[in-house]
Design a protein around this nucleic acid. Sequence first.
DNA 1: CCAATGTGCCGTCATCGGGC
DNA 2: GCCCGATGACGGCACATTGG
Length: 288
Amino acid sequence: MSEGQQETAILSTSEGETLVTVTQVSAEEVAQAGTTTMALVQLPGGQTVQVATISDGETSQESGDSSSDTQKRREILSRRPSYRKILNDLSSDAAAVPKIDEEKAEDDGASTNNIVTLPTPIYQTSTGQYFAIAGGGAIQINGAEGLQALTMAGAGGQQAGATIVQYAQTSDGQQFFMPGSQVVVQSASGETYQIRTPSGGIPQGMVVATSPASIQSSQGVPEEGTRKREVRLMKNRDAAKECRRRKKEYVRSLENRVEVLEVQNKQLLDELSGLKNQFRLNPGSAGQ
DNA sequence: CCAATGTGCCGTCATCGGGC
DNA sequence: GCCCGATGACGGCACATTGG
C-alpha cells in the first residue's frame, strides 16, 4: 500500500446508519508504529480511535493516550535489545504516567515499585482478617482462633495469595508457622521485621516475630550485617522481578512487530502479484 | 495411574556498569 | 573505590502434558 492510499470499511445498520468507519492505515504508518497501530476506527460521534494489537501487559496501558505510547514503542523497537535502555525510557515516562504501577498490579501481583515501600503496613489473612505492624514494632493480629494463614494484601514480595505465614491463637499470645526458615517483612516506614525459626523452645516450624529494636538489643551489631543482607536480597528479588517483567514485555513487543511485518509482507506480495498479473494482461501499460 | 518431561516463575549469586 | 541497580546464569519448585 502506498502513501495516501487508505482502505476504508464502513459498518452500518440495515437502515443505512453508519456505526463505525474503519480506516486501515498505510503500511508505512504501520511500520512506523512498529507494533500496535493497525487501523483507525471512527466512531459515530466523529471520535477516532486507534485499534491496536492486544497483549497481556500492554492493554492496560494503551487504552488511554496512545500517541505517546506509539512514539515510545517506535523508539524501543528501532534499536537492538537493551533492557537497561528500555528501563530508562520507562522510568522517564513513569513520572507522567503511572503505567508500571497499573501493569504490575494486574501482571503478576508484584509490588508497585519495590518491596521496601509497601503501600500499607496492614496485611490480610486468608479469612479476611487483618494484622498490622504498629509504629512501636509490634505485630497486631485482630481476633483469631485456630490456625490462620497470612497472605500479603495487595502488592508484596510474595505471589498474590501465597501463604507466607500461618499463625495460631494461644493462651499466651500469637504463634507463627511458616513454610520457609525465615521471612522478612518491611513496613511502609522502612522498618524491617524478621520472622525466623528459633533453634529451640517451641515446636519445629513455629516462629517468632521480632521488631528491629528487639533484634538489635538481643543480638547486637553482628545482626546488622544480616539485616543488610536481607534488605539487599529483598531489593535484588524485586529487581529480578522487574527485570523479568521488562524482558517479557520486550519479547511481546518483538512478537507484535513480527505480526505487523508479516501483514505488511503479505500486502506487498499481494500487490506485487497484482501488478504482475496486470502487466501480463496488458504489457503496454507498464510504467504508467 | 504414574513417572518422565516440558514450561513458567521465582530466588539467589555473580558480574557489569554508572553515579558519587 | 564503594555502592547500587540491572541482568545473565543457575537451580528449585509447582503445574501441565504426555506416553506407557
